[in-house]
Design a protein around this nucleic acid. Sequence first.
DNA 1: CCTATAATGGACCTGTCGGTCCACTTTAGA
DNA 2: TCTAAAGTGGACCGACAGGTCCATTATAGG
Lengths: 207, 207
Amino acid sequence: MSTDERTALAPPTEKGRAMRARIVDAAAELIFERGIAEVSLGDIQEKSGASKSQLYHYFADKNDLLRAVIERQERDVLGRHRVVFQSLGDWDDLQRWRDAIVAFQASRGCRGGCPLGSLASGLAEFDDGARDQLSDAFESWVGLIAEGVARMVERGDIRADVDAEALAIGVLASLQGGLLMAETARSTRPLEIALDAALAHLKSFAT
Amino acid sequence: MSTDERTALAPPTEKGRAMRARIVDAAAELIFERGIAEVSLGDIQEKSGASKSQLYHYFADKNDLLRAVIERQERDVLGRHRVVFQSLGDWDDLQRWRDAIVAFQASRGCRGGCPLGSLASGLAEFDDGARDQLSDAFESWVGLIAEGVARMVERGDIRADVDAEALAIGVLASLQGGLLMAETARSTRPLEIALDAALAHLKSFAT
DNA sequence: CCTATAATGGACCTGTCGGTCCACTTTAGA
DNA sequence: TCTAAAGTGGACCGACAGGTCCATTATAGG
């Protein structure tokens, strides 16, 4: 599969934008808790209260809606992590970041992995456009983490000769793998261990 | 969803076992290259040369077949990694393990992630039985890696006070995350970096 | 050799999926 | 105030999914 047509991003009226958002939100939530394969347009209709014609009024087809869902999850996830990494102060901040993620997964009973990670796994071999989108999302995420690392370098917490981007990629990979294993085992333990290992690796570059 | 009935594992005749294996192989391959959602029984029929009645002769339903696929992939993947970790000699062996994984993904053009990882991501919120199965598979995998670490401890390469299982979990998480990111980006770079970070973390416990 | 069981082919059924269509109502703004 | 565009409801459709059924052919073992 490759890219299909795309509908205009923003409906002209307030009402339209609200409806469109409700649809995307409903789809995102359903997909997060069931996986892409188990969500039909009918389910999305029911949850959002939209009618069939509304779905096709705001989106060209199911893939177009899917892309909107990716966009939304990217905004959501990156937004939450941005506030951490753009003001990364010290090692304690990083530890708090780790703890917050673990606590969040625990609060969900370890149901569902990473909103972006599971989309990536489910769409990578199905829709090249979606894969590109998700690849960009991961890249931005890495950039965010790398910014935090760079800030710690500036502050003198981390050695100046490190490759901040590579470190960031390592951290994100540990997070993704940890989330997948935690979801599968329904236990936060693998996630905790994976994140601890990632942070320990970071700390090995402490000044 | 929860567990359904299961067919007897081994057909009585040689012919039957062969046909059953062909079906599972075809299903495994299709699912690996397209994802679970994009594979229908019809596709599996076509690829394996089996008829509808054969599918339902050897498997209770689609989920039963899916479970057989998981079993097969577990045997396959763990088998390949077992030969490495059950004879883990030194750091060079680990490096060769890393290189082999990277080379394998590269040879596939980074299409498809981990056969077990993508099944886990796609089935965790859909079939509890499958999730348990995959959770066990990950656990065995961790056990394998931990064995290797333990062997290096015995040889005196790694400090004796480490938690081998925790280290193994960290390594597997990095592998899973790295594979997912590599699949999404269609580049082995994230995988290389993730594995290098994991091995560096291991080496930080070198004697 | 004979018979019970395994293996096979494929027509067929039913539900559901993504997607189309058209008639109707609401709303913005000239 | 009038009208064009936006928004909405829902009947409808063809394709295809998973799954059932039954008739037929191979085959193993007494």
